[in-house]
């Protein structure tokens, strides 16, 4: 009797679990969205009311066949680029994206002059 009850319970909760489960695409989006209430956390890590509401909105947009870009645009229109962990390349974020590349290039030139060039001369 107890086993039958457990089996019924198991099958009863399967649809609930399926409805609540987040797809890989949803999780990838959540990971790139900042929770604006607890700013250090991503939406994926946060269980604040705001995060839960926003997750529902994103889920709804995915069901309505919106692309990732459309979802990100929807959010940045309302909350600014700050809501994204991966800010887009714009004039005001040029330094952010450009600096690592510039330092890598400078480092490469430095290494070439100091390490490779003396060997070539020899």
């Amino acid at each position: 009797m107890r086993n039958i009850f457990l089996i019924i319970l198991f099958f009863f909760f399967i649809p609930v679990q399926l409805a609540m489960a987040s797809t890989e695409r949803e999780i990838n989006i959540y990971k790139n969205i900042r929770c604006l209430v607890c700013q250090g956390q991503s939406l994926n890590d946060s269980n604040s009311d705001f995060a839960i509401d926003l997750k529902k909105v994103i889920k709804k947009k995915i069901i309505n066949k919106k692309s990732d870009k459309e979802i990100y645009n929807y959010l940045t229109e309302r909350y600014g680029d700050w809501i994204l962990f991966n800010p887009p390349l714009k004039i005001n974020t040029f330094l952010l994206w450009g600096f690592p590349l510039m330092f890598a290039l400078l480092g490469g030139v430095f290494l070439y002059i100091k390490v490779v060039a003396p060997h070539l001369r020899q």
């Binding site: 705001f50 509401d53 909105v57």
Partner: peptide, 13 residues
């Protein structure tokens, strides 16, 4: 009821 209207207008809380 689900907070979606508030998000639609860009509310934080």
């Amino acid at each position: 009821k689900d907070g979606s209207i508030s998000i639609e207008i860009g509310a934080y809380g």
